[in-house]
Design a binder for these strands. Structure first.
Lengths: 229, 229
DNA sequence: AATACATTTATTGTATGCAATCAAGTAGTT
DNA sequence: AACTACTTGATTGCATACAATAAATGTATT
């Protein structure tokens, strides 16, 4: 938990949410002063939040140059998605060994929420889709596994923000339903396969993006607007 | 990496090392003032280090009460060891899919160091044994996997400090050699099995400690000394 | 006009001071 | 003697001041 400072938590949480939802885009500068002003706290607390976000890979702090929203490379993106596959595979295995009743109940309740928000509130829909995966991890009862999944889901959101075009990479509600169904049957093999396919789909929609934004710097953009002599 | 402050890194690193090597024992208070004095830095930098260690699970910060060396419960201990099994299984699978030549070479070089330090320098021997596992993770080439393994190996060291009697839980050098051999053959199944057995051995020696400290509270201890009416 | 150098400005790095909080010990009441 | 209320000392929470650094701008020199 965030024990070090109660008052810096809102700063941390708001920044985190803003990054995940792409309100703060990769590369954007995060000056301590202005953030502190908007939250009504001193730079000390802002700094705490930024250091934490840096440790989680959502923010990049460079000495004497300050913090900015992290810009994961495509290589890091693949690395993180692979790790996510590993962690969520573990989640599936563990859940399928447990008493499925209460687990399925909790998952179906969540799925209903996802369904309700589907066409209505895009941002909420995306957030709920991510939280489905976090809920799965929490239901294993493993604190540390849940923490890792939580962290890696955030980082995947940042990756989507960087590489995917809008709305291309939402989790499908039916795919979540299929995963729940496999868990209900205690069928670990199917659960793992479906989760793998599900994540693979998200990854592909995100990373096999034809218009790769790796080269989206000022020079590259302006070159397209330059008059042809 | 530790980008937020060059000068607080030594504080962080020393504390970390001291905790892992049991010089600082679980539950021991870590006051900002005195630590700052010993390192010649202000409380600000000490605090940075402590917050980081808290995030890594080696230190426990409680609001307005300061930091102390974490005291993982036995339940957390099992949780962490299970997670470690998961992560190192992934390491084994990945390494066995790679070109084994350079990997085996690096591992054997490390093993030679372990061997050299064996009866001579106990502390160094324990550190090298832990670093063997970190090296394995690094050789996968996955930054994030290596980070997680690094973190979890530290936490396991803390657990050993809390629950195992001295020297009961060292990694055996021969077991490391067997793991290397399996990797050399690209035999994932054997590599995973051996790693699993190896870690299981460490865990058992640590956690199936006959004198279980879970009940080491005043009441439990005194009950053994109570006269039988 | 281009380059190198100097100056200014903005932002971070760190120490420190003051207020808030907690732990412990003291005194006073029943 | 036990229990509460108060006081004191130590420690943390946070804001702020000042120093250090880097980026941006301006100036001079070729």
């Amino acid at each position: 938990m965030y024990k070090s400072s109660k008052r810096s938590f809102p700063v941390y949480d708001s920044l985190r949410q803003a990054i995940i939802e792409q309100a703060l885009k990769p590369g954007m500068k995060l000056p301590e002063d202005s953030i502190g002003e908007t939250f009504g706290v001193s730079r000390t607390l802002v700094r705490n939040a930024l250091v934490r976000l840096d440790a989680e890979g959502l923010v990049d702090i460079q000495p004497n140059r300050g913090a900015s929203v992290a810009e994961p490379t495509i290589e890091e993106a693949y690395d993180i998605f692979d790790m996510r596959q590993c962690l969520e595979r573990e989640v599936m295995h563990r859940l399928c060994q447990m008493e499925s009743g209460p687990i399925v109940k909790a998952l179906k309740a969540h799925l209903a929420e996802e369904d309700k928000a589907l066409g209505k509130d895009g941002t909420r829909s995306i957030r709920l889709a991510g939280e489905f995966h976090i809920l799965l991890a929490e239901l294993t009862g493993s604190q540390i596994l849940a923490n890792y999944v939580n962290e890696i889901v955030s980082r995947c959101s940042l990756i989507l923000a960087r590489f995917a075009q809008a709305h291309s990479a939402e989790c499908g509600v039916e795919e979540h339903a299929e995963i729940i169904e496999a868990i209900a049957r205690g069928d670990a093999e199917h659960a793992v396969t479906r989760m793998h396919g599900h994540l693979r789909g998200v990854q592909d929609r995100a990373l096999l993006n034809p218009e790769d934004e790796r080269e989206e710097n000022v020079a590259a953009i302006l070159s397209r607007y330059r008059p042809k002599d």
